[in-house]
């Protein structure tokens, strides 16, 4: 029981929006970095990534409730 609670405390749930594809909730264990999520989601390098609307480094540590937005490099028409 105690182990379960500890596991739940350490779990991190972030919302991942891959524009044009899907919106999912990603569950991972602390410490969870942006790079971990991107590697797990299989994103290519030709995208731009924001966490809560801000550009951050791949080593940025995510916390529960963060929103990761993955968009292609924007090219207005």
């Amino acid at each position: 029981m105690t182990t379960d609670l500890l596991e739940r405390e350490r779990a991190v749930a972030v919302k991942v929006v891959m524009m044009g594809k899907n919106v999912t909730t990603f569950h991972g264990k602390e410490p969870l970095s942006l790079g971990d999520v991107l590697a797990e989601m299989g994103t290519t390098g030709n995208t731009e990534v924001r966490v809560n609307g801000v550009t951050v480094d791949k080593t940025h540590r995510l916390t529960s409730g963060d929103m990761v937005l993955v968009v292609p490099k924007i090219r207005g028409g």
Binding site: V17, M19, V23, M67, L69, P72, K73, I74, G77
Partner: peptide
């Protein structure tokens, strides 16, 4: 909107308005 037109349209369809505003 160029290359994000379809993605935006999908996000509005999913009521992902906040994300749409981000983009």
């Amino acid at each position: 909107l160029g290359n994000i037109r379809e993605g935006i349209a999908k996000m509005i369809g999913e009521y992902q308005i906040v994300v749409t505003v981000y983009v």
